[in-house]
Design a protein around this nucleic acid. Sequence first.
DNA 1: CGAATAGTGTCTATAAGACATTATACT
DNA 2: AGTATAATGTCTTATAGACACTATTCG
Lengths: 243, 243
Amino acid sequence: MSDEPWSPPAVLIAVDLVILTLRAAELHVLLVERGIEPYEGAQALPGGFLNNAGEDIPDAARRELQEEASLDTSRLHLEQLGAYGLPGRDPRGRVVSVAYLAIAPGLPDPAAGTDAADASWKPVEGILSGHRKLAFDHRQIVTDGVERARSKLEHSALATAFCDRTFTISELQQVYEAVWGVRLDPRNFYRKVQGVPGFIVPAGPDRRSTKGRPARLFQAGPRNVLHPPLIRPDSSTTNEGDR
Amino acid sequence: MSDEPWSPPAVLIAVDLVILTLRAAELHVLLVERGIEPYEGAQALPGGFLNNAGEDIPDAARRELQEEASLDTSRLHLEQLGAYGLPGRDPRGRVVSVAYLAIAPGLPDPAAGTDAADASWKPVEGILSGHRKLAFDHRQIVTDGVERARSKLEHSALATAFCDRTFTISELQQVYEAVWGVRLDPRNFYRKVQGVPGFIVPAGPDRRSTKGRPARLFQAGPRNVLHPPLIRPDSSTTNEGDR
DNA sequence: CGAATAGTGTCTATAAGACATTATACT
DNA sequence: AGTATAATGTCTTATAGACACTATTCG
C-alpha cells in the first residue's frame, strides 16, 4: 500500500441545469433539442462541458445557460443538486455531471431565430411520468430537482423566485399549488404566509387590478428560512428511501 | 458557434467521506492523517481518487472507507453531499471531489498497528469553530455534512443509524441532543418519538439494566420518512442563505 | 429507604384546517 | 344590482412545550 507509480483516471466534467418555471399554473422545465450525437434530436437539459481546466463549475452553469437559452443568469437563484457520474451514462466516455437547480419567474417562449431557438419549456408532468423521454439520465436529474424544489418550498422563501419582483399572495399560492401539485385553502394560506416574519413584505402602496378587488402587492422579504415552515399536506404517507 | 475541433478539459475525480458517529455524547467525525503531499501530516477526511475510469463513485467511496479506516461499509448508510470543484482546491491540479455522508454507530478507536492506525475520531466542534485545521476544503465539507445530518434528523429515521441495532429511547434522544447541540425534554421526546408510526418498533420482550429502572429496547422501524417530523428547536431564528 | 433512571399524565399556548363573512373593484 | 376576487374572522382539533407524578431497579 505504498505509493505506486500510478495515476488516477481523468474524466470529463459537465454541468446540467434544471430550470423550473411556472406557465399556465403548471410547473415547466427548460429543455433543449440536442444538435449533435449522442442523443441527437432528443430533448435534454441545457448543459455542457467545462470550458477549460480553470473554469469554476457554477460559472460554467451560468455560461451554458446563457449560451443555450439566452437567459439572464444574473437574477437567477442557482443551487447545486449533486453529481451524477454513473459509468456508462454518457456513451462518449466517463463523464461526471454536476447538476444545478434554478428557479425562474414566468418567461416567454424562447424566440425563434435566436441561438436559443431549440430551447423550450415543457411540463414536468410528462417527464416525471415517463411519457416524455430525455437524453442521458436527465429524467432522474429532473426528478431530483423537482423534489428538491418541493422540499425547499417548505423551509425557504424559494417560492418568491418563481414570481416577478412584486406579486400578490394568490400568485404566491399558485406557486405552491403548482409545485406541490395540491390545492390549498386561500384563507389559511393567506394567514400562514402573513404569519411568517420576513417572508414577504408589502411593496409600495400600489395595487393591481384585473377583475375583482385589487390585491396588495408584495415582494420577497429579508428572511430566507421560514419560521414556522409551510408544511405541505401529507401526500398520503408514502414511504420513501434515499436515492 | 459551430463545433470547433475542441475537446473539454479532463479533471480528476476524488471522493471524500464525512463519517459521523457519537462518542461520549458528542458528535465526532473520522479523520485521517495524510501521509503524502500535499498537506502531508495534516488531518483530512478519508477519501481518494477513483481507481479506474470504470469505477462507480459510491463504490469508490466504500472502497476508500475500507482501505483508510477498515470500516465495515456494508451496514453503513451512505448519501451524497455534493460535488466540490473549486479551481485551486487541490494544488496538484483540477480535482472535483464528490463528498458522501455516512453515519456509524459508536465504534472503538481504530486499533494501532492496522492499516487504519492513522485514522481517528475527532469532535466536530473544534472543526466547525475553526480551532482544528483540515486539509483542502474539508472544513467546508464537514460543515455541510453536519448540517445535512441535522436537517435529516428532522424528517428521516437517520438517528437510528447512530445507534446499535437495538437501543433505548434515551439513547435515541442523546443522538438528537448531540447532533442538534440542544437539550430536549425526555418526556416530550418520548411522547413524540412514540407518536411517529413506524419510526421505532419494540425489539423483543427483553430489557437492559444499568442503574435505574430497566429501559425497553427498540429497533429501527420500517418507515424512513417521519410523519409528523421532529422539529428541532428554533436556533434563535438565524437567517441563512444557500451555500 | 434513597438514589437513579424509565415511563405516564396533565395543562396551556400555539398552529392547522374547515368554513362564513365582509370588502372593493369591475360591468 | 350582479359578479368576481381579495381580505378577515371564527371555531374546532391537533400538536408543542412546560412540568408533576408514578414505576422499577439497585445498593
